[in-house]
Design a binder for these strands. Structure first.
Length: 738
DNA sequence: GGAACATGCATCGGT
DNA sequence: CCGATGCATGTTCCC
């Protein structure tokens, strides 16, 4: 039974804080054993801050890697989650300080590892895996099957391929070492962190030596020369591990694959090419899983990456050649883009990992035998944040149950990323979204590998068979394309600076994340800069839904939108408070309160679909006791979640809501929002008061009965515009009564 | 027609 | 008697 432990009968309504007096996010982080500093950054850093962090930060700010796709899944979200990517600064520090063999729980970065290291890495991965699950288990068994819960890992599977600082080393004998360095290097940084390019190549870390050891078979590969440094503990360890692997009957397939590839490409692929490959550990894990899992999955992934490197190199060489012809006044290692912004998108390439090599036609064939997917062959200067390897969402039930990612969910991160995408990439986001949407209804069932548990967060890896997009990307290697990209980048940089002042407009392009969009939306903020967590709601009053193109889209009754991912339904009121639910909370459902909900009955009818999707499954009609922490007051209400048989169906109710409603002064037309804390799995509720300063009050009966307007009771604004005739959007300050 | 939801209303139990 | 509980029914909309 999902979340059964959350609903202990011994809880009492109105118990203050339930032993968690200060249910602050930081406090919760500490409970989780998660480094607080990271979380603080994650939770509190604004984009402005990120912009000031460092070049690397700027890089990511400009072209944030897309959130990882939850696979097996969200999160969201977008999530989701959502465990979104951690703050850049955090990643920088951790990446710099972490060594490849570090086993710190805080270190979860991973670079593709050679076969020799794979097992060691597997241990790390498992460790991480257990780490997450243990956390989940610790808090809520339900989380185990909650896609979003795992999002912490899945979402962070941001894949980025690095174009590091140019190395003078050519592809001499050391090339192989460099290769090893790359592929034998498993950085264990925070799984959600971005890598720090400067931290990658530390010859004294003995990391690539590990791979050397793995590959140290001169008789077989005389062309490979290694530094035979002795006494390196890492080497010894690696060797031992390697031997152990062999003894254990585990083949070093990865190493052999890599060696084969090296032999085939040693003359055409440089160390630089290989150095550019860097993947997050979680990305690798998820990608490998998507590719079949286990060693085979890792091997497939390695092949994919090598193929990418190869293709990438060829393209670069073509560019170099054209450069040497006088077309480009800069040498290969001084890519103008890099010079211009050494840490921006030109430094990143995201390898989209096929979600499922069985389901994705692009990956049904061995990467060895097929032309590399165009997006894999992208010019290093081609930023493809949209293709960040959202390879998997272990919780892939789909909804970041967003969700919403929300959001915060896995989906949350994903959506969050949208905001900072260059305009040219919104189409990707949009595409991505639509794909996810489609999958919500169709692809998931047929593609279990994509989604996992319940597919509540169906956003997936963008299908690789988008001809248009592929064509667009495939042309990126051309000089013209590069020029365009540069111009686009400039525009985006400029655009980004003004982003906070134009969030609404910006947000309405493509499928930007309403969560993040609203986070910085000055309009949405309470007047006077009030940071009170009270509920403010932004009311669209457009009649007939004619004003779809406003920030309140998330509130406008659009069944199609609602049918999408849950994170799209993150109440604007929440987003507009500066409060960032996407960091810890996953939006579950919301309900516009009807008269019967706020009356003396003390029960609120919950939308059936959402209830069944996001709340614990009910075996008995008596339901379960469920503690709902009031987000605004931290007060915990012990409610009962149950259902009534209704015809052949069920009607889901939240009971014991009378005091909550009264305390919050909720009235008909107001709404409640229910979240789950992605960290500890507890449920949180917020009452949002909706008040229209002018205009007709909601026609209680009529508006309430309009399915159109209520759209499964998930569209708060809709309930208030049922009779509205104004086409203007008004901002209404409301506040949750505490 | 059926699903989902709002709510009417019958019933029950406590005071 | 009154509030709580739970079922039934009406309304609306989607398929």
């Amino acid at each position: 039974m999902k979340g059964s432990e959350l609903h202990g009968e011994d809880r009492h309504q109105g118990v203050e804080n339930e032993g968690n007096p200060a249910i602050g996010f930081d406090a919760m982080e500490e409970e989780q054993g998660v480094p607080v500093e990271d979380k603080e950054i994650w939770l509190e850093r604004g984009q402005e801050d990120l912009l000031q962090v460092s070049d690397v930060s700027i890089f990511y700010e400009d072209f944030p890697p897309l959130p990882d796709f939850p696979c097996m899944s969200s999160a969201s979200s977008s999530s989701s989650t959502p465990a979104p990517v951690k703050a850049i600064t955090s990643s920088l520090s951790s990446s710099c300080s972490s060594s490849a063999s570090s086993s710190s729980s805080a270190a979860s970065w991973a670079v593709l590892k050679s076969g020799a290291e794979e097992d060691v890495e597997k241990n790390h991965q498992h460790g991480n895996h257990y780490y997450h699950h243990n956390n989940i288990d610790d808090y809520n068994s339900r989380a185990m099957e909650d896609p979003v819960e795992v999002t912490t890992a899945a979402l962070s599977s941001t894949c980025s391929m690095e174009v590091p600082q140019p190395l003078d080393q050519a592809m001499e004998g050391v090339e192989c070492m460099d290769v090893m360095e790359d592929f034998g290097y498993i950085d264990l940084l925070e799984s959600n962190d971005f890598f720090d390019p400067s931290s990658i190549f530390h010859p004294d870390e003995g990391l690539f030596e590990e791979f050397q050891m793995e590959q140290n078979k001169p008789q077989d590969h005389p062309q490979l020369q290694y530094d035979q440094q002795a006494g390196n503990e890492e080497i010894t360890k690696s060797k031992n591990d390697h031997e152990a692997d062999h003894q254990g009957g585990r083949s070093d397939d990865l190493a052999m694959v890599f060696l084969d590839w090296l032999k085939s490409n040693k003359e055409t692929v440089s160390a630089d090419d290989l150095r550019r490959v860097k993947l997050k550990k979680t990305t690798i894990e998820c990608a490998a899983r998507r590719l079949g899992g286990g060693k085979e999955g890792m091997k497939q992934l390695l092949k994919l990456i090598l193929q990418w490197v190869q293709t990438n190199h060829l393209q670069r060489r073509r560019l170099r050649e054209s450069s040497s012809n006088g077309n480009l006044p800069y040498p290969y290692n001084q890519d103008p883009l890099q010079n211009q912004n050494p840490n921006t998108n030109s430094n990143i390439n995201c390898i989209p990992i096929p979600a499922n090599n069985h389901s994705n036609p692009c990956f049904t064939q061995s990467p060895w035998n097929v032309a590399p997917p165009p997006y894999l062959a992208a010019d290093p200067a081609t930023v493809m944040p949209g293709f960040s390897p959202m390879v998997c969402d272990p919780f892939s039930n789909g909804a970041s149950n967003i969700n919403g990612h929300p959001y915060g969910t896995p989906q949350d991160y994903m959506l969050q990323s949208y905001q900072t995408w260059p305009p040219s990439q919104f189409d990707l986001a949009s595409h991505f979204n639509s794909f996810a949407d489609n999958n919500l209804h169709s692809a998931q069932p047929q593609n279990p590998a994509f989604t996992g548990y319940g597919n509540q967060y169906p956003y997936q890896y963008v299908p690789a068979n988008d001809d248009n997009r592929l064509a667009r990307l495939g042309s990126s290697a051309t000089k013209e394309a590069r020029k365009k990209r540069m111009a686009r980048q400039r525009r985006f940089l400029s655009h980004h600076r003004n982003q906070n002042h134009h969030n609404i407009q910006h947000q309405n392009q493509g499928a930007g994340d309403p969560h993040e969009r609203l986070a910085n939306d000055p309009i949405g903020a309470p007047p006077g800069g009030q940071s009170n967590p009270g509920s403010w709601v932004y009311l669209p009053t457009a009649a007939g839904g004619g004003s779809a193109s406003t920030t309140v889209d998330a509130l406008v009754d659009r069944p199609a939108m609602q049918a999408q991912n849950n994170y799209h339904r993150q109440p604007a009121a929440e987003r507009r408070q500066g409060w960032k639910p996407e960091k810890n909370l996953r939006f579950l459902l919301q309900k516009v309160l009807k008269q019967s909900d706020v009356g003396s009955l003390g029960r609120i009818v919950l939308p059936k679909k959402e209830a069944e999707t996001h709340l614990p499954e009910l075996e008995a009609r008596d339901g379960i006791s469920i503690a709902m922490e009031d987000i605004g007051t931290s007060r915990v209400w012990n409610m009962r979640y149950r259902f009534w048989p209704n015809n052949k169906s069920r009607m889901y109710l939240l009971e014991n809501t009378g005091d909550f409603v009264r305390t919050n002064g909720l009235q008909e037309g107001d709404f409640i929002v229910i979240y789950s804390d992605v960290k500890c799995g507890k449920y949180m509720i917020r009452g949002v008061k909706v008040r229209q300063p002018a205009g007709p009050k909601p026609e209680s009966k009529r508006a309430g009965k309009s399915r159109r307007n209520n759209s499964h009771a998930n569209c708060p604004a809709a309930a208030n515009n049922g009779s509205g005739s104004s086409s203007t959007t008004m901002i209404t300050q409301t506040r949750t009564v505490k």
